[in-house]
Computed example of a mutant assay.
Amino acid sequence: MIDNKNKVAAVFGVRNESSIAWDIAVKLHRSGCTVALSYVADTKDEVLYLMEQNGMDTALAGLADVRNEDDISAFLKLVHQIAGPINYLLHGVAFGSQSVMCYSLPGSNEPAPSYIDIPFEDFMDAFNISAYSLLRICRVAEPLLAKNASILTLTYNASQRVFPGYAGMAICKAALENIMIYLASYFRGEKSARVNAISAGLVMTTSSGGIFGVRKLRKMGKFTAPLGNIDAGDVGDAALYYFSDLSKKVTGNIHYVDGGFNIMGLGVDGEGN
C-alpha cells in the first residue's frame, strides 16, 4: 500500500463522480494524502458534495477557471496556506466545443462541422483550457511546490493517431504532450519536480460522451485492445504510482493505460481477426 501521509495534492479537473480526476483524488485520499480540489461555477456544488461524502476537507476546495491565472494563484495559495507545500499536482482539465471536435448533435439533421473549418477563436479556447493551462498552472505552482514534487496530466492517443470524432481536440492533446516534456526538462536541478502524462483509453465520462461515435469506439476497444477496455479506476491506479516515491526517477513519460490499444495496427473482431 502506498503511504502518502503528510503529502498534499492539488487536483484540477473533477467535474463529477465519473471524472477520471475524481477517481485519482479518491485514491490519493485513501493513501493518506491531503487532497484539495478546484471547481468552476457549474461544478462547485457537485465537487463540495463529493468531498463531504468522502471525508475530504471542503476548506481545501476553491474556484479556479484554468484560463485565469489569478484564480489558479488564489486556489493554490489557499492550499499552501492551509496544508503546506504541494507534493502532487494533477492537471485533468480539457474542453472542446462542438465546432472543435467536429461532431453533430444526436438527432440533428445538420451535418457535422468540417475539420478544415474549425473556427480559430473556438480552437484557441480549447487550446487555452486543454493544453496551455498546464503551463499556466505550473508557473503559478512552482514557488509553492515541495521538493521532489510530482506533476501529472491526462492525455489521449488521438494526439498520435486519427480519431475523426476528436478532431481539433487532438491538436490540443499533441500540444499538451509537448508542453509536458518541456516542463519535465524545465523542472530539473534544484526545482527537482517530475512531470509525466497518462494516456488513458476511452473511459465513459461526461466529457467523453461528447466524442462522436464513442460507443462504437468502446465496442471496438473491447476486441482490439489485448486487455480490453479500461475504466477510471485503472487510470487512478496508475496515477498513484506517479503520486508516490515509486516514480521518483521518472519524468517526461507518456504512460499508456488503454489495455494495449495503442500497440495495435488494425482493429480486430470478436474472433481476434
Rank of each mutant, 00 (worst) to 15 (best):
V93T: 02
A36M: 08
L63M: 15
G96H: 03
A61R: 01
D45I: 09
I82T: 13
P106C: 00
I82S: 11
V40C: 07
G96P: 00
D122G: 04
V66I: 02
F127S: 14
Q53M: 13
F75N: 06
I129N: 08
M51F: 04
L105M: 13
G84C: 09
A112Y: 04
C33Y: 01
N87V: 07
P113G: 03
Q81R: 15
G84K: 06
R67K: 13
S38Q: 11
I72N: 03
F95I: 12
D71M: 05
K27S: 12
T58Q: 12
A83L: 07
T34I: 15
R67L: 10
Q98L: 08
E46Q: 13
T43F: 06
A64L: 09
A131H: 01
G32A: 10
Y88C: 03
G107Y: 02
A61W: 03
A59C: 12
A83S: 09
V79T: 14
F95A: 14
G84I: 11
N109C: 11
Q98F: 00
S31H: 12
L48H: 06
K44M: 01
P85A: 06
I86D: 04
D122C: 07
N68G: 00
F75W: 08
K27I: 11
S108V: 10
P111K: 12
V47K: 03
Y39Q: 04
M51N: 03
A61N: 05
D125A: 14
T34Q: 08
G92L: 05
